[in-house]
Design a protein around this nucleic acid. Structure first.
Lengths: 215, 215, 215, 215
DNA sequence: AATGAATGAGCATTCATTCAT
DNA sequence: TATGAATGAATGCTCATTCAT
């Protein structure tokens, strides 16, 4: 889905749109999509109000661009941390951990994505959902390699992804009590480890499992 | 938190507010809180525009009343299905199943609750969150009775509740593929059964576990 | 100008209208005619909202009734204090002093009358102005008896009446500094005494002039 | 007290505000502040409804701007006609005459100022009253130079100013009968001349007094 | 390409008035 | 007669979008 711009220079378009999105995210974070005004976004982006419409056709477009950029970034970040480790058990853990870390890194965007999704126009929504489902597919492929378990792997993958944003979506209740790592460990052990057990009947011991992937 | 009404008759207030909320939920479902107009809510509720303001002081109040009613109803429904069964293992399963069923029953409201929560005014939000956390407490108490497990029971309870709305929040992707019962069974078995296992080290066999609680 | 009432009983009408006006004056004082709501007037009057419309046809009517009542009361009060003293010099002073005292007594109504007059409907306005001009006529007649002076007596009478509400209309600046009597004496001596001097060429000595008429 | 504008260009702001005020005064004259709608003001001002809010934050602001502009203009006009004549007797007469002429020149604004003053917001009111009291101070200073009279000079100054708008506030009754000059002469002779007499014991003969100051 | 002033459709809210009980 | 719930026209204000410069 290509958004039309009045301006021709492609590299200028990318640069300005990046600027606009940066501003928009700040404003969306503060007040959500609806209460955000284009004026405020322009100010936050350090661009003139009129100029926004040289790069975007409507306020809706900004939301779409946000989702589009977010989905792309998210997926790329997760994939870039994918390991080449052959062992599918470790691969799943590492991929999930990467997902959790990226979700926390982009927590504002994740939050926005889950609360503002319904406001993108129908035709845009499809594009976004297609992108979002790539991440589910990514996990499904890894799960498939584990072998056949008692549940449909697509369902498992969907729940895994859903579980992965628990720390972000419930942060207002979790944050004051639990540290980032605590939540990550909890999720890795209760979701990934148990998924592996139920598919392969194996229990991975803590000594070899649950180590932080970074550092 | 009491919402003032211009009208005195309490039973009339309840009745009209119910009517208003019914209309509001329809409209919120279609367009979300912000795009919903009070006019449209009035129409949908079969009440005149001006009359809405006899029962409610602002559009914000309608959102608050929705959340308040939703949280109360939800909790009551879940609690009303609580069993007197002494066995804490079965109690947890039955409570969780009840939660899942109520969430699906009230799916529109659950959905709204998760996407529109940020739009309630700050002072109202506190009241609502207090109510919502009761449900977490409810599960925490049941979990506590299982004994001491490897994770903080409040964290476990929070995740359990979060997992319980998976089927609703992801319905657009799950619905076309999986039936209600399939999702319920999946969640009961992967979340409750495995939680029990990790706390008590017991595995409940499928033959005695995972049966539908209704019928 | 007769205001129609839905109710027949004349004495009931008078009584209720008095009640309504009492409430209305309180509210008008607080917020002026426009910001006063009929609901608030009803509350203040201790009468039901709907019932107001049994005695009055519109909010405008209330304003008219206020002016009508005010003008009548004012004139009657001033006239009732008129003396039978034959000396026209003393008569003028006594009448003016009576006017000042009544204006201060009814200061809220005087104030309302001067600030809200423009909001009565055109056809009502005529009736009110006719009544108000009676008071000017009253003074003109007294002035006429003084003899022929250098200025048109109607102009003199008008200014006299205008000067008489100085203490009320400027009370926010005068009140903190000057007492009631101080203002009255100032006006009597500068307006009445000098008017007499310019008409009759006489100066009334303070010993025989400027004494308070009451007590 | 500075009113914020969305627009930056100061000279544009002045120009448009002038335009808005011009329109507002027309509408206020016709229906008073409350019945005036912003829509109507916009039309009368030849500006779009939305644009009004680029120069003003609320309808209240328009009223404030009116008062502020009026008080400033009035004072400047009066002061600009102040003479350098050393004789304080003549100075008082000339200043009063200037006041009367300005009041009649700005009669619509004077009228509005006296009837709509109560509708400005509290915090704005202070600013306006401070400005208005400058004119009283102006006269008090001139009176002070006449010497010590029987009454408090601040009280005298206040009444003088009050008397000065008689012709405007009572125009509906005076206008059909008396000309502008007739009213001016009446006020000058009865208020200023007699004030001088009572302070200095002098009578200024008509031959040297009461001549029009212009032409 | 960039700017920001101008536009007006759209919305929440108020309140005089009506009318069923 | 009295009551107060119901009605909807009217109004202040916002904000996405356009367009002249």
């Amino acid at each position: 889905m290509q958004i039309q711009a009045r301006v021709k220079d492609q590299s200028l378009i990318s640069e300005k749109r990046r600027q606009i999105l940066e501003g928009a995210i700040q404003v969306f974070k503060r007040k959500g999509y609806h209460k955000a005004t284009v004026r405020e976004i322009a100010e936050e982006a350090g661009i003139s109000l009129g100029s926004i419409y040289d790069y975007v056709n409507s306020k809706d477009d900004i939301l779409y661009l946000f989702f589009d950029g977010y989905a792309t970034t998210f997926f790329e970040k997760v994939r870039s941390r994918a390991s080449k480790i052959a062992d599918p058990l470790r691969r799943l853990e590492i991929a999930y951990r990467a997902f959790l870390e990226v979700a926390m890194e982009l927590e504002d965007q994740v939050m926005l994505s889950y609360t503002q999704a319904r406001y993108v126009q129908k035709d845009y929504l499809k594009v976004i959902l297609r992108k979002e489902s790539e991440i589910v597919e990514h996990f499904k492929r890894i799960i498939d390699e584990l072998g056949k378990g008692p549940f449909d792997p697509f369902l498992e993958a969907n729940f895994l992804v859903y579980s992965g944003v628990f720390g972000v979506l419930r942060r207002w209740i979790l944050r004051p009590r639990y540290g980032r790592e605590e939540i990550i460990d909890y999720l890795v052990q209760t979701q990934v480890q148990e998924m592996i057990r139920r598919i392969q009947g194996k229990t991975i011991r803590n000594s070899e499992f649950g180590m932080r992937s970074n550092q």
